[in-house]
């Protein structure tokens, strides 16, 4: 079988598991873990596509590094938002903060 398709299948698996968890999880930390899984799948897909085809390999690796940087930034912000939510509501599940004021 085509090696690229195998790597893409792993990436799609990570995306699917992440999406499932994102819909299934109730706490924000669990959702954050699922988003990290999906971003990993994205990075793997980019690198596999760049390394195994005629595309520019350096560009693919740098794009994957960019994805990792964005994941780190996103995790930092989610941590701060979680602290604010936990301080204000006492819990961090999605049902607690689902209602708008008014």
């Amino acid at each position: 079988m085509n090696p690229l398709v195998l790597y893409q299948a792993v990436a799609i698996f990570l995306l699917c598991v992440g999406l499932y968890g994102l819909a299934y999880r109730k706490t924000f930390v669990g959702m954050l873990i699922c988003v990290e899984l999906m971003l990993n799948g994205a990075g793997l897909s980019i690198v596999a596509a760049a390394q195994l085809t005629a595309a520019d390999s350096a560009l693919g690796q740098l794009a994957a590094l960019l994805v990792m940087g964005l994941a780190a930034a996103e995790a930092t912000l989610v941590l701060a938002i979680l602290i604010v939510v936990a301080r204000r509501f006492g819990r961090t599940d999605q049902d607690t903060v689902a209602e708008l004021r008014g």
């Binding site: 954050l32 990792m68 995790a75 941590l79 979680l82």
Partner: peptide
Amino acid sequence: TPLLALMQLLIYAGAVVVLVFFAIMLT
């Protein structure tokens, strides 16, 4: 791509996982 493997361990397993662990413990 050994550099990416190293960065994966350094950034994800090193930094992001620790952040998520902080999030679990703080909330």
